[in-house]
């Protein structure tokens, strides 16, 4: 029996038809994600990293190749695969706990268990006391914490994060990165993070995958064995960050 939360992508490709022309958005993506690991996808905009996440979460079934979760092909969306979007996407007419509870609407759990789960996850993301708040009463960082709680409350095997911290200010982002790390270590759920922030990727991940556009493909894979919590200023950290930026084409080779 395989451990829960292992994801495998085999020759995954995705094309769009634009004005009669075929556009290769993703080309021959192969990927193995071990259960409980933290993977980041980085790359310039347009490299298909968000598209890839949409395929994995099951919002787009028109692709080639195979996506397997615990050895089985994924079919549509499922509460076994959670996602956090860049915009928190909380429903403004629901309170914080109602928003999180909406994830459990179709879970076959008794009421009490649902209530407990919602309560526990609000505590997990540090929002205890805000259960009855409406989204407009929350700051951007708090709303994103709530979105993370909503993504985790159904106890998915894998949590997909689509630039979840991209819209936050620098200070809040750094705080939430530590939160994310703590949550990941507490829950040991497989996480796949899409980000354009290389430092964020290096700070959080076991492995960073660099993607390049035209067609969207994985061009580099960097395994990170730095002990956590990582020191963003350490020479090793900086070196890895610079290397990834170079792979992405962001830093000219001369500067290295």
């Amino acid at each position: 029996m395989m451990e829960q939360g292992s994801l495998r992508l085999r020759h995954v490709g995705k094309q769009y038809q634009v004005k009669g022309r075929t556009l290769d958005v993703l080309h021959d993506i192969n990927l193995d994600v071990e259960p409980g690991s933290f993977i980041s996808l980085v790359g310039a905009s347009g490299c298909g990293k968000s598209t890839l996440l949409r395929l994995i979460v099951g919002l787009d079934a028109a692709f080639r190749g195979r996506i397997l979760l615990d050895g089985e092909p994924i079919q549509g969306t499922s509460l076994r695969r959670g996602i956090v979007f860049q915009d928190h996407r909380l429903l403004p007419w629901l309170t914080l706990s109602e928003n999180i509870g909406l994830s459990l609407e179709n879970m076959n759990w008794p009421r009490q268990r649902k209530q407990d789960a919602v309560h526990r996850h609000i505590e997990l993301v540090g929002l205890a006391g805000f259960e009855q708040a409406y989204p407009y009463q929350l700051s951007g960082g708090m709303a994103q914490r709530a979105a993370i709680a909503r993504g985790l409350v159904s106890e998915p095997e894998i949590l997909l994060l689509d630039e979840p911290l991209g819209a936050l200010d620098a200070l809040t982002r750094i705080r939430l990165q530590d939160e994310l790390l703590r949550i990941w270590q507490a829950r040991r759920v497989t996480m796949i993070l899409v980000t354009h922030d290389v430092e964020e990727a290096v700070y959080l991940s076991d492995r960073v995958l660099v993607m390049q556009p035209h067609p969207g493909r994985i061009t580099q894979e960097i395994a990170l064995d730095l002990p956590r919590p990582r020191d963003r200023a350490s020479p090793r950290f900086t070196e890895i960050r610079q290397r990834i930026l170079r792979d992405m084409g962001a830093v000219p080779a001369l500067a290295a």
Binding site: G58, T77, D87, R89, L91, E105, N106
Partner: peptide
Amino acid sequence: DYIDLSRVLTLRRWQFIRRIIIPAAT
């Protein structure tokens, strides 16, 4: 975006109407 959200949360059509469409249109 709410349609994507509703699919991710695996809401059924009636749940989608009741929990998302109606309040959003109110």
